[in-house]
Design a protein around this nucleic acid. Structure first.
Lengths: 127, 127
DNA sequence: TTGTTTCAAAACGAGTAGGTTAAATATGCG
DNA sequence: CGCATATTTAACCTACTCGTTTTGAAACAA
Protein backbone atom coordinates (compact mmCIF):
# COMPACT_ATOMS: atom_id res chain seq x y z
CA UNK A 1 0.00 0.00 0.00
CA UNK A 2 1.62 3.21 -1.23
CA UNK A 3 5.13 2.17 -0.29
CA UNK A 4 8.06 4.56 -0.21
CA UNK A 5 9.84 5.35 -3.45
CA UNK A 6 12.80 3.06 -2.80
CA UNK A 7 10.50 0.13 -2.19
CA UNK A 8 8.65 0.88 -5.40
CA UNK A 9 11.92 0.87 -7.31
CA UNK A 10 13.13 -2.41 -5.80
CA UNK A 11 9.72 -3.92 -6.40
CA UNK A 12 9.81 -2.80 -10.01
CA UNK A 13 13.27 -4.30 -10.48
CA UNK A 14 12.20 -7.61 -8.96
CA UNK A 15 10.59 -8.72 -12.22
CA UNK A 16 12.81 -10.05 -15.04
CA UNK A 17 10.50 -8.72 -17.73
CA UNK A 18 10.64 -5.23 -16.28
CA UNK A 19 14.42 -5.37 -16.01
CA UNK A 20 14.58 -6.51 -19.61
CA UNK A 21 12.38 -3.61 -20.61
CA UNK A 22 14.77 -1.19 -18.93
CA UNK A 23 17.67 -2.86 -20.69
CA UNK A 24 15.89 -2.49 -23.99
CA UNK A 25 15.28 1.20 -23.32
CA UNK A 26 18.99 1.84 -23.00
CA UNK A 27 18.97 1.45 -26.78
CA UNK A 28 16.43 4.22 -27.13
CA UNK A 29 12.73 4.94 -26.70
CA UNK A 30 10.27 2.28 -27.77
CA UNK A 31 6.55 1.70 -28.26
CA UNK A 32 4.51 -0.73 -26.23
CA UNK A 33 4.32 -3.13 -29.15
CA UNK A 34 8.09 -3.03 -29.58
CA UNK A 35 8.62 -3.69 -25.90
CA UNK A 36 6.13 -6.55 -25.92
CA UNK A 37 7.64 -8.29 -28.92
CA UNK A 38 10.40 -10.32 -27.19
CA UNK A 39 8.09 -11.82 -24.57
CA UNK A 40 5.46 -14.50 -24.46
CA UNK A 41 2.93 -12.26 -22.76
CA UNK A 42 0.04 -10.24 -24.11
CA UNK A 43 0.16 -6.53 -24.75
CA UNK A 44 -1.99 -5.57 -21.74
CA UNK A 45 0.49 -7.36 -19.51
CA UNK A 46 3.33 -5.24 -20.86
CA UNK A 47 1.15 -2.20 -20.50
CA UNK A 48 0.85 -2.89 -16.81
CA UNK A 49 4.55 -3.55 -16.41
CA UNK A 50 5.11 -0.11 -17.88
CA UNK A 51 2.69 1.32 -15.37
CA UNK A 52 4.72 -0.19 -12.55
CA UNK A 53 7.94 1.18 -14.02
CA UNK A 54 6.37 4.60 -14.40
CA UNK A 55 5.11 4.60 -10.81
CA UNK A 56 8.66 3.83 -9.70
CA UNK A 57 9.92 6.76 -11.75
CA UNK A 58 12.00 4.46 -13.93
CA UNK A 59 10.38 5.50 -17.20
CA UNK A 60 8.51 8.49 -18.59
CA UNK A 61 6.08 8.40 -21.48
CA UNK A 62 5.13 10.50 -24.46
CA UNK A 63 2.95 10.23 -27.52
CA UNK A 64 3.80 9.91 -31.17
CA UNK A 65 0.60 9.66 -33.17
CA UNK A 66 -1.32 6.70 -31.77
CA UNK A 67 1.79 5.15 -30.28
CA UNK A 68 3.16 5.83 -26.80
CA UNK A 69 6.89 5.98 -26.36
CA UNK A 70 8.62 4.86 -23.19
CA UNK A 71 11.79 6.64 -22.15
CA UNK A 72 14.30 5.40 -19.60
CA UNK A 73 14.60 7.53 -16.46
CA UNK A 74 17.59 6.24 -14.57
CA UNK A 75 17.51 8.71 -11.72
CA UNK A 76 15.91 6.30 -9.22
CA UNK A 77 18.69 3.84 -9.94
CA UNK A 78 21.12 6.37 -8.60
CA UNK A 79 19.22 6.30 -5.30
CA UNK A 80 19.42 2.53 -5.29
CA UNK A 81 23.16 2.69 -5.81
CA UNK A 82 23.44 5.21 -3.01
CA UNK A 83 21.56 2.89 -0.70
CA UNK A 84 23.78 0.00 -1.71
CA UNK A 85 27.00 1.91 -1.26
CA UNK A 86 26.65 1.57 2.47
CA UNK A 87 27.12 -2.18 2.21
CA UNK A 88 30.04 -2.13 -0.14
CA UNK A 89 32.56 -2.64 2.64
CA UNK A 90 30.79 -5.84 3.63
CA UNK A 91 31.44 -7.53 0.35
CA UNK A 92 34.94 -6.18 0.08
CA UNK A 93 36.67 -9.09 1.79
CA UNK A 94 40.02 -7.44 2.22
CA UNK A 95 38.53 -4.59 4.23
CA UNK A 96 35.82 -6.43 6.07
CA UNK A 97 37.74 -6.95 9.30
CA UNK A 98 38.94 -3.39 9.44
CA UNK A 99 35.54 -1.97 8.75
CA UNK A 100 33.91 -4.14 11.36
CA UNK A 101 36.40 -2.74 13.83
CA UNK A 102 35.63 0.80 12.73
CA UNK A 103 31.92 0.13 13.04
CA UNK A 104 32.46 -1.20 16.54
CA UNK A 105 34.44 1.90 17.47
CA UNK A 106 31.71 4.14 16.13
CA UNK A 107 29.17 2.25 18.16
CA UNK A 108 31.20 2.79 21.29
CA UNK A 109 31.40 6.55 21.05
CA UNK A 110 27.67 7.06 21.03
CA UNK A 111 27.55 10.76 20.21
CA UNK A 112 24.65 10.74 17.77
CA UNK A 113 26.16 12.18 14.67
CA UNK A 114 23.93 12.62 11.63
CA UNK A 115 25.65 9.85 9.78
CA UNK A 116 24.46 7.26 12.25
CA UNK A 117 22.63 4.29 10.81
CA UNK A 118 20.25 4.18 13.70
CA UNK A 119 17.84 1.34 13.96
CA UNK A 120 14.42 2.61 12.88
CA UNK A 121 12.15 3.99 15.51
CA UNK A 122 9.11 1.95 16.40
CA UNK A 123 7.15 1.84 13.19
CA UNK A 124 9.68 0.81 10.58
CA UNK A 125 11.78 2.16 7.72
CA UNK A 126 15.41 1.60 7.12
CA UNK A 127 18.24 4.03 7.61
CA UNK B 1 7.73 -18.90 -9.06
CA UNK B 2 11.30 -19.91 -8.22
CA UNK B 3 12.69 -16.73 -9.67
CA UNK B 4 16.34 -16.16 -10.51
CA UNK B 5 18.71 -15.02 -7.82
CA UNK B 6 18.72 -11.38 -8.85
CA UNK B 7 14.95 -11.25 -8.71
CA UNK B 8 15.00 -12.81 -5.26
CA UNK B 9 17.43 -10.18 -4.07
CA UNK B 10 15.43 -7.28 -5.49
CA UNK B 11 12.27 -8.79 -4.07
CA UNK B 12 13.90 -9.11 -0.66
CA UNK B 13 15.04 -5.48 -0.78
CA UNK B 14 11.58 -4.26 -1.74
CA UNK B 15 10.37 -4.44 1.86
CA UNK B 16 11.34 -1.62 4.27
CA UNK B 17 11.43 -3.96 7.25
CA UNK B 18 13.85 -6.27 5.49
CA UNK B 19 16.07 -3.38 4.46
CA UNK B 20 16.05 -2.15 8.03
CA UNK B 21 17.05 -5.61 9.21
CA UNK B 22 20.04 -5.56 6.86
CA UNK B 23 20.96 -2.12 8.13
CA UNK B 24 20.78 -3.37 11.68
CA UNK B 25 23.01 -6.29 10.82
CA UNK B 26 25.78 -3.97 9.68
CA UNK B 27 26.23 -3.36 13.40
CA UNK B 28 26.78 -7.05 14.03
CA UNK B 29 24.92 -10.32 14.30
CA UNK B 30 21.58 -10.31 16.08
CA UNK B 31 18.91 -12.66 17.37
CA UNK B 32 15.39 -12.78 16.01
CA UNK B 33 14.05 -11.09 19.12
CA UNK B 34 16.57 -8.27 18.77
CA UNK B 35 15.68 -7.81 15.13
CA UNK B 36 11.97 -7.81 15.90
CA UNK B 37 12.19 -5.24 18.66
CA UNK B 38 12.05 -2.03 16.59
CA UNK B 39 8.95 -3.01 14.64
CA UNK B 40 5.26 -3.23 15.28
CA UNK B 41 5.01 -6.76 13.97
CA UNK B 42 5.01 -10.06 15.74
CA UNK B 43 8.09 -12.20 16.01
CA UNK B 44 6.89 -14.89 13.57
CA UNK B 45 6.55 -12.18 10.94
CA UNK B 46 10.21 -11.28 11.43
CA UNK B 47 11.07 -14.95 11.31
CA UNK B 48 9.59 -15.10 7.84
CA UNK B 49 11.32 -11.94 6.72
CA UNK B 50 14.56 -13.60 7.73
CA UNK B 51 13.62 -16.62 5.68
CA UNK B 52 13.19 -14.39 2.64
CA UNK B 53 16.53 -12.72 3.27
CA UNK B 54 18.20 -16.09 3.65
CA UNK B 55 16.67 -17.39 0.42
CA UNK B 56 18.09 -14.33 -1.33
CA UNK B 57 21.51 -15.09 0.15
CA UNK B 58 21.54 -11.82 2.06
CA UNK B 59 21.95 -13.39 5.49
CA UNK B 60 23.31 -16.60 6.96
CA UNK B 61 22.30 -18.08 10.28
CA UNK B 62 23.88 -19.85 13.22
CA UNK B 63 22.91 -20.95 16.70
CA UNK B 64 23.89 -19.71 20.11
CA UNK B 65 22.08 -21.74 22.74
CA UNK B 66 18.38 -21.47 21.97
CA UNK B 67 18.83 -18.30 20.00
CA UNK B 68 19.57 -18.07 16.29
CA UNK B 69 21.94 -15.40 15.08
CA UNK B 70 21.55 -13.69 11.74
CA UNK B 71 24.67 -12.59 9.91
CA UNK B 72 24.81 -10.15 7.01
CA UNK B 73 25.98 -11.63 3.70
CA UNK B 74 26.49 -8.72 1.35
CA UNK B 75 27.73 -10.68 -1.64
CA UNK B 76 24.40 -10.54 -3.52
CA UNK B 77 24.44 -6.78 -3.17
CA UNK B 78 27.60 -6.75 -5.20
CA UNK B 79 25.67 -8.44 -8.01
CA UNK B 80 22.97 -5.82 -7.73
CA UNK B 81 25.54 -3.08 -8.01
CA UNK B 82 27.04 -4.79 -11.02
CA UNK B 83 23.65 -4.88 -12.67
CA UNK B 84 23.07 -1.23 -11.87
CA UNK B 85 26.44 -0.12 -13.15
CA UNK B 86 25.18 -0.53 -16.67
CA UNK B 87 22.72 2.32 -16.16
CA UNK B 88 25.08 4.69 -14.48
CA UNK B 89 25.74 6.62 -17.67
CA UNK B 90 22.02 7.35 -17.93
CA UNK B 91 21.86 9.26 -14.70
CA UNK B 92 25.19 10.92 -15.22
CA UNK B 93 23.88 13.97 -17.03
CA UNK B 94 27.23 15.34 -18.08
CA UNK B 95 28.15 12.16 -19.92
CA UNK B 96 24.77 11.13 -21.18
CA UNK B 97 25.16 12.49 -24.70
CA UNK B 98 28.62 11.06 -25.12
CA UNK B 99 27.64 7.67 -23.80
CA UNK B 100 24.59 7.49 -26.01
CA UNK B 101 26.88 8.10 -28.94
CA UNK B 102 29.25 5.39 -27.76
CA UNK B 103 26.36 3.00 -27.32
CA UNK B 104 25.18 3.76 -30.82
CA UNK B 105 28.64 3.13 -32.19
CA UNK B 106 28.87 -0.16 -30.38
CA UNK B 107 25.51 -1.15 -31.75
CA UNK B 108 26.71 -0.43 -35.25
CA UNK B 109 29.71 -2.72 -35.17
CA UNK B 110 27.65 -5.80 -34.49
CA UNK B 111 30.46 -8.25 -33.78
CA UNK B 112 28.84 -10.07 -30.85
CA UNK B 113 31.20 -9.32 -28.03
CA UNK B 114 30.34 -10.72 -24.61
CA UNK B 115 29.44 -7.32 -23.31
CA UNK B 116 26.45 -6.96 -25.60
CA UNK B 117 23.20 -6.01 -23.91
CA UNK B 118 21.07 -7.93 -26.32
CA UNK B 119 17.34 -7.82 -25.93
CA UNK B 120 16.22 -11.13 -24.45
CA UNK B 121 15.35 -13.93 -26.80
CA UNK B 122 11.71 -14.96 -26.92
CA UNK B 123 10.99 -16.10 -23.41
CA UNK B 124 12.34 -13.36 -21.18
CA UNK B 125 15.24 -12.46 -18.89
CA UNK B 126 17.29 -9.35 -18.95
CA UNK B 127 20.80 -8.96 -20.19
C1' DT C 1 -18.32 10.04 -39.88
C1' DT C 2 -16.34 5.61 -40.24
C1' DG C 3 -12.66 2.81 -39.72
C1' DT C 4 -7.80 1.48 -38.30
C1' DT C 5 -4.14 1.38 -35.28
C1' DT C 6 -2.27 1.47 -30.74
C1' DC C 7 -2.76 1.34 -26.38
C1' DA C 8 -5.28 1.45 -21.56
C1' DA C 9 -8.84 -0.12 -18.44
C1' DA C 10 -12.07 -3.45 -16.64
C1' DA C 11 -13.12 -7.85 -14.94
C1' DC C 12 -11.68 -12.19 -13.66
C1' DG C 13 -8.64 -16.16 -11.69
C1' DA C 14 -4.50 -18.37 -9.71
C1' DG C 15 -0.82 -17.72 -6.99
C1' DT C 16 2.05 -15.11 -3.68
C1' DA C 17 3.10 -11.85 0.28
C1' DG C 18 2.73 -10.39 4.62
C1' DG C 19 0.29 -10.23 8.69
C1' DT C 20 -1.98 -12.71 12.69
C1' DT C 21 -2.65 -16.49 16.56
C1' DA C 22 -1.79 -20.97 18.20
C1' DA C 23 0.86 -25.09 18.30
C1' DA C 24 5.30 -27.52 17.54
C1' DT C 25 10.30 -27.80 17.89
C1' DA C 26 15.15 -27.25 19.67
C1' DT C 27 18.42 -26.13 23.29
C1' DG C 28 19.99 -25.74 27.78
C1' DC C 29 19.10 -25.78 32.95
C1' DG C 30 17.93 -27.77 37.54
C1' DC D 1 13.02 -35.85 33.02
C1' DG D 2 10.37 -31.53 33.25
C1' DC D 3 10.50 -26.81 32.30
C1' DA D 4 11.76 -22.22 30.39
C1' DT D 5 13.47 -19.72 26.43
C1' DA D 6 13.81 -18.70 21.59
C1' DT D 7 12.31 -19.55 17.34
C1' DT D 8 9.86 -22.05 13.57
C1' DT D 9 5.82 -24.04 11.48
C1' DA D 10 0.90 -24.45 10.60
C1' DA D 11 -3.41 -22.56 9.60
C1' DC D 12 -5.82 -18.81 8.37
C1' DC D 13 -6.97 -14.10 6.45
C1' DT D 14 -6.62 -10.12 3.38
C1' DA D 15 -4.58 -7.84 -0.20
C1' DC D 16 -1.77 -7.56 -4.00
C1' DT D 17 0.61 -9.37 -8.31
C1' DC D 18 0.69 -11.12 -12.81
C1' DG D 19 -1.44 -13.22 -16.24
C1' DT D 20 -5.59 -13.62 -19.27
C1' DT D 21 -9.67 -11.94 -22.44
C1' DT D 22 -12.83 -8.40 -23.50
C1' DT D 23 -14.09 -3.71 -23.86
C1' DG D 24 -13.05 1.29 -24.22
C1' DA D 25 -10.52 5.38 -25.69
C1' DA D 26 -7.15 8.42 -28.38
C1' DA D 27 -5.12 9.78 -32.62
C1' DC D 28 -5.25 9.88 -37.24
C1' DA D 29 -6.56 8.78 -42.22
C1' DA D 30 -10.03 8.42 -45.79
Amino acid sequence: MAADQLSLVFQALADPIRRAILTRLTNGDATVAELAEPFNVTQPAISRHLKVLEAAGLISRSRRATARLSHLEAEPLRDVTTWLARYQRFWDESHERLDELLAALQNNRQNGTDRAEAVPTKGNEDG
